[in-house]
């Protein structure tokens, strides 16, 4: 896999805390992370470790309490809701554990939605093509309730790719599926990702799924670590990636290599 060394996503000293009554609950602690364009990275960790919170901030759905987040060189941490929406519409694709399809829309209409939002002229043609690619060419007019879980997730995958995002965030994409279907979905995501050259940020607690990413980082109680043992050795560009990376908030000595914006 060709990895563009240019960083597409960069996080510096990110923390996230919430006020619960009179206590401050720290969800994320001084995180640093760089993701190169075209790279696939898995964020693993147990439930409640802060994976999804991190994903929300990385994707511009939420704001950090402190720290900086750059996506495609755009300072998400300085952006308001509207500006972040625009960034998402232009650069980001999503796949969720709950599929999050709109029930009243057909499969095709669900897929077309991001393209319509991005004003793409050939939304329908592209939608049909993508649904064909995920093997649902004969299910275009089916509603989510008429589809199985695996089929719904395939629609969600097609939807994620239709607007040709630069970066794709997937939150436990196989979490609601059986292992066989999950395997199939995983294949689809990675195949399409390779074909479209999209950067992939995957949140999962499934070690097998995580292993298919070029790089893995681990969340534990709001702290991000990068166990080097988990890094695949034969991946092209792994050294670059490793050298760039990141983290260890505990380690005072390491600083992020790449600072952009």
């Amino acid at each position: 896999m060709q990895v563009n060394s240019e960083s597409i996503l960069s996080v510096k000293d990110l923390t996230k805390s919430v006020q619960v009554e009179d206590k401050t609950l720290v969800l994320l602690q001084a995180l640093n992370l760089n993701v190169a364009a075209g790279e696939s990275i898995a964020i693993v960790g147990s439930s409640g470790s802060g994976k999804t919170t991190l994903l929300s901030i990385l994707a511009g759905l939420d704001l950090p309490s402190t720290g900086q987040v750059y996506l495609k060189n755009q300072p998400l941490h300085q952006f308001n809701e509207e500006q972040r929406s625009q960034v998402r519409a232009q650069h980001v694709g999503f796949i969720f554990q709950q599929f999050l399809l709109i029930n009243s829309l057909t499969a095709l209409e669900n897929v077309m939605l991001p393209a319509e939002l991005a004003n793409m002229p050939d939304a329908q043609v592209r939608g049909e093509a993508l649904l064909a690619q995920v093997g649902l060419a004969d299910r275009l007019d089916h509603y989510p309730s008429q589809l199985s879980g695996g089929e719904q997730q395939r629609v969600a995958i097609a939807r994620a790719f239709i607007a040709q995002p630069d970066i794709l965030f997937a939150d436990e994409p196989t979490g609601n599926l059986d292992s066989k279907t999950g395997q199939h979905i995983t294949d689809l995501i990675f195949d399409l990702n390779a074909k479209e050259g999209t950067t992939l940020v995957l949140v999962t607690h499934d070690a097998k799924l995580a292993a298919r990413c070029q790089r893995q980082v681990e969340m534990d109680s709001g702290i991000l670590t990068e166990p080097s043992a988990l890094v695949a050795t034969d991946d092209l560009g792994k050294d670059q990636i490793n050298s760039k990376n990141i983290n260890q908030s505990e380690s005072e000595t390491q600083t992020p290599v790449s600072q952009e914006g």
Binding site: E82, S85, R88, F94, I102
Partner: peptide, 19 residues
Amino acid sequence: EERERELAILRTLGAKGSL
């Protein structure tokens, strides 16, 4: 509820507030 869910999805997909 259906609207809330839809808005959430559309928001996530990057739809602007004015839209």
